[in-house]
Design a protein around this nucleic acid. Structure first.
Lengths: 123, 123
DNA sequence: TTACTATATAAGCATATGCTTATATAGTAA
DNA sequence: TTACTATATAAGCATATGCTTATATAGTAA
């Protein structure tokens, strides 16, 4: 049973360009690099990027709409993770990004782990 | 002798995002895919993309400003070619794009070769 | 229920982007 | 020089983008 719409090659290139455009924003590119290693929740990114919570949510919505990330609600938190197993062009770009530890150090942030289940000092 | 400015890792990620943003436009992405196989001049792209000549020149200027393409003037024509030997993240994306022949077929264009030296019927 | 926390959505705004037309520049050819 | 071709630059415009603040929604905990 075919549930996907049929896309021709031009449509595919258009979708590829759209996905790549989403990577072409410094904030989102770093988000995706961080997501290489583990899932993060919205409030983590609010702390790391110093962007308002709605700002972060909107970035995640864009990434989700193009199936680049997936979300999972657990309790009051929503965790985001990469969904690029079928997107080698995105994997290839992220392969050239530093790991979480280096990124956080560059941004003068510590891994706060703000949304861990046992953490009472969460956002 | 150090002629390059020093960039820290955050600057490098910013530049990476800028380069990727340039790929995130359908027209430029297809241009770069076409350039994988050979050089093209501005008037070729005017015919293929049905965008005004200044529009094409502005795309090439952006790509040139981030060193993604290089130009070579020969006679009255300016030929553009890829300059991504040192940019594996861009190579990786272009590896997932179709070849010139397929692209031109999809766009219902024939390889006009409008700017060949021996071509009198050029733009 | 009420009070709270985390996230999403709506609306607004300043700036960026991709095109256009008009014009300037660079080279060719008589 | 003059006439021509190819390309670049300038200016303008409609739309997209990345943020903000205000508010709605979803879940937790008493």
């Amino acid at each position: 049973m075919e549930t996907e719409l049929h896309f021709n090659k031009l449509d595919q290139m258009t979708e590829l360009a759209e996905q790549i455009k989403l990577l072409g924003d410094r904030t989102r590119l770093i988000m995706l690099a961080l997501l290489k290693e583990r899932e993060w929740c919205v409030c983590d990114f609010v702390e790391i990027f110093e962007i308002s919570q709605p700002g972060i949510s909107q970035h995640m919505r864009k990434l989700k709409s193009h199936k680049i990330v997936k979300e999972e609600r657990r309790g009051q938190w929503v965790y985001y993770s990469l969904n690029i197993a079928d997107k080698p062009h995105i994997q290839a770009v992220l392969d050239h990004m530093p790991g979480s530890e280096e990124i956080l150090r560059m941004m003068n942030k510590t891994e706060s782990d703000c949304c861990s289940p046992g953490n009472d000092s969460c956002c």
